[in-house]
Write a protein that binds this DNA or RNA. Structure first.
Length: 486
RNA sequence: GCCCCGAUGGUCUAGUGGUUAGGACACCACCCUUUCAAGGUGGUAACACGGGUUCAAUUCCCGUUCGGGGUACCA
């Protein structure tokens, strides 16, 4: 076995990149980086019916977005090519032949229908459905060579007669399984010549010199089956680390019905990749009380031993809170870049807009937005577009009194020499004092006139960013009753 | 059914054979305040249960309960 750490992420391309998979990839990636090891990406596409090319692309795209680069695999170095299981069929066959020759595997000519029928009978008799090992002995003698060659069959593993198989797991310690009950004569190569997961994963990890298998908890129970194959082949067994699962609010395995689980969807929903990564790394791993980590800090402090053993419930609210913190600290130019296409979809163009103006717009919105979506939508009123006035806001603030204030303010604003926050603040305060009104009584109607809503960033900064022209036009529209509610 | 894993506030978690059981999110209150946020301060809230071991168990052991996973020609 290689003395250098070699780990892998081996997703099945049967959908988008799931956050659970992303976290598994992240832990593998961190472990590799921490130990100067190699991070491999392998595509487990043996499920012909469900695997799609689009999913493969989604995995690449998701990994790249999260900045989880792989050292070996598609598009990277390929010393152990190929990295798609469906392209490795000859390799699985070579080892299967070896197993066959050593009588650690045998061909089973039972058809899927016959198998199903037997299972049904067993259930009817109150037994647990199981393969009865009917082809375990040299029954092939009853078949001619021609028949053997032409008949569709599977290759089954000849499970060890008995004994205990111990899975050495970094997190759970030594987990013992009784091989008599846990390892049956399971299918290695399916009737269509494609290997099953439990077999392919062994051959791949062994031939790719994987030293540590870091994967989801759901694979722990299958590990003894895999170890039995390593042993039958005399291959070195890697070190295992089974990660706790990620659950939904109802404590069942996290799935679509609990909310977003696709990495791409999180991106589309306006999350920053570093926020998702930071949230994910804290799901099952911790370093004291620290909540926020830079990539360098994660690598620096990561260790398998510090992983948590119990499953974790995915908390969307906490992810959002983290995203807001990352949004606040994000480079403003980068945010503008990310926002531009979103604004474009909303019909807003930043063409010709001053960079400083855009930065200021983002500044006023960033601490009241949990996602880029909220940020993009929240900026609508800053652009010269017709506003959709919130009916409740209009009713509450554009009253006779409110309108009267706005009317009185109109002239003063038009006459304002320097249109900036300081001057605007002075103007409003002087006016309110003069009228003996509370600031809120004059600012709230103004807010509704300028933004169509009762809540917004500070009024002075909003007006300053709107500029005198647009501000006055909106004021006039409201004063003339030209208000479109929505 | 059988096998395996797990259990600290609602959620993510820190932690210890003797602690006022700590932090974060969420929630509540107050402060700030032109609204909404953000920010600040404070608060409600947890060691699943039963047995052991021990001077002392949240911590170690066993059992129970509950949760999760596996038991495919899915991965």
């Amino acid at each position: 076995m290689a003395d250098r750490v070699r780990v892998r992420f081996a997703p099945s391309p049967t959908g988008y990149l799931h956050v659970g998979g992303a976290r598994t990839a992240l832990f593998n990636w961190l472990f590799a980086r921490k130990h100067g090891g190699v991070f491999i990406l392998r595509i487990e596409d043996t499920d012909q019916a469900r695997s799609t090319e689009a999913s493969v692309d989604a995995i690449f795209e998701g990994m790249r977005w999260l900045d989880l680069s792989w050292d070996e695999g598609p598009g990277a170095a390929e010393p152990h090519a190929p990295y798609f299981q469906t392209e490795r069929l000859p390799i699985y066959n070579t080892y299967a032949e070896q197993l066959l020759a050593a009588d650690r595997a045998y061909r089973c000519y039972l058809t899927a229908e016959e198998l199903a029928a037997k299972r049904e009978e067993q259930s009817a008799r109150g037994e647990q459905p199981h393969y009865d090992r009917s082809w375990s002995e040299a029954k092939t003698a009853t078949l001619t060579d021609a028949e053997k060659a032409s008949m569709r069959h599977v290759i089954r593993f000849r499970a060890p007669a008995g004994g205990t198989i111990v899975v050495k797991d970094v997190l759970r310690g030594d987990v013992s399984f009784d091989s008599a009950t846990m390892v049956e004569d399971y299918v290695l190569i399916k009737g269509d010549g494609v290997p099953t997961y439990n077999y392919a994963v062994v051959i791949d990890d062994a031939t790719m010199d994987v030293t540590h298998v870091i994967r989801g908890d759901d694979h722990l129970s299958n590990t003894p089956k895999q170890i039995a194959v390593y042993e039958a082949l005399g291959l070195p067994v890697p070190i295992f680390c089974h990660l706790p699962m990620i659950l939904g609010a109802d404590k069942s395995k996290l799935s679509k019905r609990h909310g977003t689980t696709s990495v791409q969807k999180f991106r589309d929903d306006g999350f920053l990749p570093e926020a998702l990564i930071n949230y994910l790394v804290r799901l099952g791993w911790s370093h004291g009380d620290q909540e926020y980590f830079t990539r360098a800090e994660m690598i620096e402090n990561f260790s398998l031993e510090a992983l948590n053993k119990s499953a974790a419930v995915f908390d969307f609210a906490k992810l959002e809170a983290m995203n807001m913190q990352y949004l606040k600290e994000a480079d403003r130019d980068r945010l503008v870049e990310l926002l531009a296409p979103r604004w474009a979809t909303l019909g807003l163009s930043i063409e010709g807009r001053d960079r400083a103006w855009l930065h200021k717009v983002v500044d006023t919105l960033v601490e009241r937005s949990r996602t880029l979506v909220q940020l993009a939508e929240g900026a609508l009123f800053y652009f010269d577009v017709p506003l959709a006035y919130d009916p409740a806001a209009v009713e509450k603030q554009l009253t006779n009194d409110g309108l009267a204030h706005l009317g009185a303010l109109r002239g003063r604003l038009a006459a304002l020499g320097t249109w900036d926050e300081t001057s605007l603040e002075a103007l409003f305060k002087a006016y309110a004092e003069e009228k003996g009104a509370k600031l809120g009584q004059v600012i709230q109607p103004m807010r509704v006139a300028m933004t169509g809503r009762t809540n917004s960033p500070g009024m002075y900064e909003v007006l300053a960013l709107l500029g005198p022209d647009l501000s006055l036009r909106r004021l006039d529209a409201v004063l003339s009753g030209n208000v479109v509610k929505a």
